[in-house]
Design a protein around this nucleic acid. Structure first.
Length: 428
RNA sequence: GGGGGGAUUCCAGAGCGGUCAAAUGGGACGGACUGUAAAUCCGUUACUUCGGUUUCGAAGGUUCGAAUCCUUCUCCCCCCA
């Protein structure tokens, strides 16, 4: 059985750990939990690091609880926030909780005997607790002085905007989660991101003061990018785990585009590859960096885990088609639905078949019938500059006539403005 | 209230009667190179049926001809009260 803490340590996934935690884990199977915030109906690549932590936890022979914050989500965690958050409606929250639960089920093993993962929603135990009960049974054990000393609270007290009682009490609510799971499920460890340390410690403190019990804490570092920008975001937005929000192709591209510097950290965090495997890959990568061996290894494993083997293959062939010398044969082999998938998020224009049937000059097609270009001269200039391709073939002449014979699957035309700007023209 | 300066094509900023669709720099976009990177180099950067057409704060005027001269208006900035 592997040593969980040691595993996190070499992967660079350990930020802070409470004394005694490692000893407890080495004693034998320990139950631990990690909470997910239902601020959206899907998890994103940022949450993926937490999921990986739980996967390692289970692989190390421990019992993971994945908690979805149906209750805490109603309150709002002030950690890392400089202003008061907007409350989500119950309806949205329920929707988000079920979306996240469905995703979490993919990653952990829920049927493997004693170390089976368990999914819990803190709303289940909070819904029965009255306000008076809570402030008598929980609030009594923690002083306001203690709560105010927390960084997340302190910063808000010093700031201009202040903090509502609701967000102020958040740490108690999360602290009670830990107490409840400790008491009812023998859950002795809470894992979280480094910003959660304060909240977790309130939990261990509550367990100590209320029942004289011992519980442990472990946090993972914030994932950084070498260029200083935020991890998990691109120009086009957050990278979600939900295929409907971020297509597997985009997801795959996100990892493929990792810089050499970042990929060395990320491959440790987001894959289950062993130290030896990773070091071997790194050596191979160093010999031929342009092959992007590390990025590919990372993207392949993670796309398969989050989506599927088939999704990965489509993502690879899509990437080859769009960036490499991928051929039209790939596109021609796809169904209409699959084509729409490949071109998801790419500007599309529809042209009537009548207009198209007698043939159309390239300039008119691109500037008049579609909005690839805003004017004909612009289109003409770029064609002359060698910057426009139709169906992967460079357009040599602006007056070239495009007709039905050029269509892919008798419906589509793939237009490229420069290398990276794709447009899909659909003849309908 | 008095005096002065300015408004130019995405931005900054030249031009001061024809040779100006307007220098130059930046940005953006394309090409080459490359690792779907950075740097570098090259090109494009009002519209067009390639004949022309509409642009230089707005409206008028002078002139064969105006971004450039005159008048009025609008808006900015500075100095003195």
């Amino acid at each position: 059985m592997m040593n969980f803490v040691e595993e996190l340590r070499w992967r660079g996934m350990l930020h802070d750990i409470m004394p005694g935690t490692e000893e407890q884990l080495n004693k034998g199977m320990t139950a631990g939990y990690l909470g997910f915030d239902p601020t959206s109906d899907s998890l994103h690549v940022g949450s993926l690091a937490q999921i990986m932590t739980l996967i390692h936890f289970q692989r190390a022979g421990h019992k993971p609880f994945a908690l979805v914050g149906g209750a805490t989500g109603m309150v709002g965690d002030p950690s890392g926030k400089s202003v008061e958050r907007n409350l989500l409606s119950e309806e949205v929250l329920n929707h988000n909780v079920s979306g996240i639960e469905a995703q979490l089920k993919r990653f952990l093993d829920f049927d493997c005997g004693p170390t089976s993962a368990v999914l819990v929603n803190n709303y289940d135990w909070f819904k029965g607790i009255s306000f008076l009960e809570f402030i008598r049974d929980v609030g009594k054990h923690i002083t306001v002085n203690y709560m105010m000393a927390k960084d997340s609270v302190k910063r808000r007290l010093e700031g201009e905007t202040g903090i509502s009682f609701t967000e102020f009490s958040y740490q108690l609510v999360q602290g009670y989660d830990f107490y409840y799971l400790w008491k009812e499920k023998n859950c002795q460890l809470q894992i979280g991101g480094s910003d959660q340390w304060g909240n977790i410690v309130t939990g261990t403190e509550l367990i100590r003061r209320k029942d004289g019990g011992t519980a442990f804490a472990l946090t993972t570092p914030l994932i950084k990018k070498s260029d200083g920008t935020k991890f998990g975001k691109t120009e086009s937005g957050t990278i979600w785990l939900d295929a409907a929000k971020t297509s597997p192709y985009r997801f795959y591209q996100f990892w493929i585009n990792a810089s050499d510097e970042d990929v060395k950290n990320w491959i440790r965090i987001f894959t289950l590859k062993s130290r030896e495997e990773i070091e071997a890959l790194e050596q191979e990568h160093a010999l031929a960096p342009h092959l992007r061996i590390l990025q590919k290894a990372l993207a392949n494993e993670i796309t398969t885990r989050v989506h599927s083997e088939e999704a990965l293959e489509t993502a690879i062939s899509t990437s080859e088609f769009l960036f490499g010398n991928g051929s039209l044969i790939f596109l021609k082999s796809l169904s209409d639905v699959a084509i729409m998938n490949v071109f998801e998020g790419i500007p599309q224009f529809t042209i009537t078949r009548v207009e198209f049937s007698q043939g159309i000059q390239a300039v008119d097609l691109l500037a008049e019938k579609s909005a690839v270009f805003t004017s004909k001269s612009e289109a003409r200039k770029m064609i002359q500059g060698g910057g426009v391709s139709i169906n992967k073939e460079k357009l040599g002449d602006a007056s070239q006539v495009i007709s039905t014979a050029d269509l892919i699957n008798d419906r589509y035309l793939v237009v490229q403005k420069g290398k990276k700007n794709y447009y899909l023209l659909i003849v309908g």
